[in-house]
């Protein structure tokens, strides 16, 4: 009977108003969550952010016992969604998927997106960066490439000015003294294709994009602190040139700043559990991403570090 009634109510587009907790009253919060949670995705359906978020959402639903409804809010490189979430009440019912842009958009575009606007709940994935050259390129190792760039600057393709991969290129150049001229393309795949066709000498992209064009490009190094499972023979930057260079497209879950402590820890634990599930792990592996988990405290430190780094590289 209740089900029929519920369905009928849903059909005319209404839902019960949840009881709003009095300020300072913790009893209501301890029942968290007692209604649907909105998970705001900063990109269009079908992309990497969207798929990762949806995979996590279906695990979170099982753990939290309420619906976690993914909602796409594309626009302004994600700033639209991030500013939207920051303005929502800090009750845990609106959370978002935050990619590396959350630490960049303030620097690159002056957006009102600052780490302190958010309760960062945990990192859930990492798409490690790689540097690759065309299959018929004379450069066999990253060291060859860097040495050659010291005579005259080499072109390095990336997915656009102010992107994580431009930052990675600039960072690598700074740490090694290489001279790289960044060339902006309209996406990671086309940037890698430019290296494959010889238009640019090299490309810095996500591992997945380079992997998709395996055969046409040679991956010189993984810009991470551990080997990438899909390319076990490719050295990390540190193994290749002795200088650590760690850049990647990471993603995590965030909420508006100032969540009540118990809501914060319920969400943090749920995310930690969801990331551990076999389905989620298998999904990310198939997508070519690594599952790198950081808890709320570690993730907050990490985002702040990245924020400073991007300010230095892209500011």
């Amino acid at each position: 009977m209740a089900g029929v009634l519920g369905a009928a109510i849903a059909l005319v587009g209404c839902s019960p108003v949840s009881e709003v907790a009095e300020p300072g009253e913790t009893a209501a919060a301890s029942t968290f969550p007692d209604k649907d949670i909105r998970l705001i995705i900063q990109a269009n359906p079908g992309g990497g952010s969207d798929l990762s978020s949806r995979a996590l959402a279906s695990e979170l639903e099982k753990i939290l016992g309420v619906s976690v409804i993914p909602e796409n809010m594309p626009g302004a490189s994600g700033a639209l969604a991030m500013e939207f979430v920051a303005q929502q009440p800090a009750d845990g019912y609106v959370i978002g998927f935050g990619p590396s842009e959350i630490a960049m958009l303030n620097t690159t575009q002056n957006a009102n997106v600052l780490p302190e606007n958010y309760d960062l709940l945990g990192q859930i994935m990492l798409a490690p960066g790689v540097i690759s050259v065309g299959a018929d390129s004379p450069y066999e190792t990253l060291q060859d490439l860097i040495d050659a760039s010291k005579d005259s600057a080499l072109t390095v393709a990336n997915s656009g000015a102010g992107s994580i991969w431009e930052a990675a290129t600039l960072g690598l150049a700074e740490e090694t003294g290489a001279q790289f001229t960044t060339v902006a393309y309209d996406g990671g795949a086309t940037a890698v294709a430019a290296a494959a066709s010889g238009e640019a000498v090299a490309a810095v992209s996500g591992a997945g994009e380079a992997l998709a064009q395996k055969g046409a490009v040679r991956v010189l190094a993984v810009l991470n602190d551990e080997t990438y499972f899909n390319l076990p023979d490719v050295p990390t930057a540190e193994e290749a040139i002795g200088t650590a260079a760690v850049y990647g497209g990471w993603g995590g879950i965030y909420a508006p700043a100032g969540l009540p402590d118990d809501v914060h820890s319920i969400l943090e634990d749920a995310i930690a559990q969801a990331v551990e599930t076999d389905t989620y792990q298998a999904f990310q592996k198939q997508s070519g991403n690594m599952v790198v988990y950081r808890d709320s405290a570690e993730f907050t430190d990490f985002v702040n570090e990245q924020f400073t780094l991007f300010q230095k590289l892209l500011g």
């Binding site: 109510i9 005319v12 587009g13 209404c14 839902s15 019960p16 108003v17």
Partner: peptide, 9 residues
């Protein structure tokens, strides 16, 4: 009446 109504409909 204690319900959230969707204005759209």
């Amino acid at each position: 009446f204690g319900y959230n109504f969707n204005l759209f409909v």
